[in-house]
Write a protein that binds this DNA or RNA. Structure first.
Lengths: 183, 183
DNA sequence: CGAGCGGTTGAAACACCTCAACATTAGTGG
DNA sequence: CCACTAATGTTGAGGTGTTTCAACCGCTCG
């Protein structure tokens, strides 16, 4: 799933892909009303937690509360890295960054097999994420293929050269806080 | 103050200006280590709260904990709006958006006088924020002046036509959650 | 009074966009 | 299983917004 915001002009920006296992709408608990949409970009199975139960958690389990709070703050950190990407990285760096990030995050749940994982977005959706037109996404992917860095076909990516890909993205996984993920 | 992230290539992206009264580093409490820098862009007076005291708050005051949690989530919402800006808005829309946002946020603390407020950033810093070069920031500001929308001189802005400025930015203050700010 | 920083300007380059056509794949009904 | 259709991916040519580089101006501060 992904967070989405629209401009009146019809343009859409996707932000922060949510992977299986993620607690998607913890934000809504404190905010009550959401400032953005949550959209699916693949088939999803969703669990629902009533806010009342979360409120009880905050009353009874301070430690768990801090953990949930941490999770929303990690979400914010991921979002912040995307601010950097959109503000400063070139097209090819942004796409590279995305695939590097996903590899690390999917690894945690065992959804990566030999640097290959499912990637259900169309090129148009990928463009809405990295702030590019579908046409330019297409050309950027071709360039990554041409350089022998990755393959993307039938909704599945394979990263052929992780080191090189992370290098062109200037990828630094610190912002993912994987070392303190509840695992 | 502002949050800042660097690329190895030396490029810097500023994210989310922090105004007087904001609790700047609530993120650090749960994250322990920060993924970004906090920089000053004006003279600042900073209060320090030991994490241990915050931990006690979470043990003893669930309501206050939820309020602090809410504050970090509003930070995240503001950040998300900037993701939209950087991904989809043009140069002139981004700059307009920033000045509209600041007007609303500064209003809360009474720091706006007749649509005029202090704006301590240089054009270069403004560029690091909106993802533009100093040169283009300069030209964009000239365009806003030419259209009679705002004046910016000696570290002070005056918005001459709030409606028009909000309109070109496609500004929607919903993401600021002003109606539930602790005030 | 000089030095340095911030702001301004012009010209040329470049990354990405737009538009429009075509190719390929996936999905649907007969 | 095939035929048809719609969605997705690919390509080319030309346009545009923003960047780059380099120069110059005007404050402010020491």
């Amino acid at each position: 799933m992904a967070r989405a915001k629209d401009l009146q002009s019809g343009q859409r920006q996707l932000a922060e892909l949510q992977l299986s296992g993620d607690f998607v709408d913890l934000h809504g608990f404190t905010l009550k009303r959401l400032d953005h949409d949550i959209v699916t970009v693949s088939r999803c199975l969703v669990g629902v937690v009533p806010h009342e139960r979360l409120r009880k958690v905050t009353e009874l389990h301070p430690h768990l509360t801090r953990l949930y709070w941490l999770m929303t703050n990690i979400d914010a950190a991921i979002q912040r890295e995307w601010t950097l990407s959109l503000g400063r990285r070139t097209a090819i760096q942004r796409v590279a960054q995305l695939f590097c990030e996903l590899r690390r995050r999917l690894e945690v749940t065992g959804d990566v097999e030999g640097n290959s994982y499912d990637f259900p977005l169309t090129q148009t959706e990928l463009g809405e994420f990295v702030g590019l037109t579908p046409v330019h996404v297409n050309r950027t992917l071709q360039e990554l293929r041409r350089r022998g860095l990755l393959e993307l076909d039938r909704r599945r990516v394979r990263i052929l050269d992780v080191g090189a890909l992370e290098s062109i993205a200037e990828f630094d996984p610190a912002y993912l806080y994987l070392e303190r993920q509840p695992h």
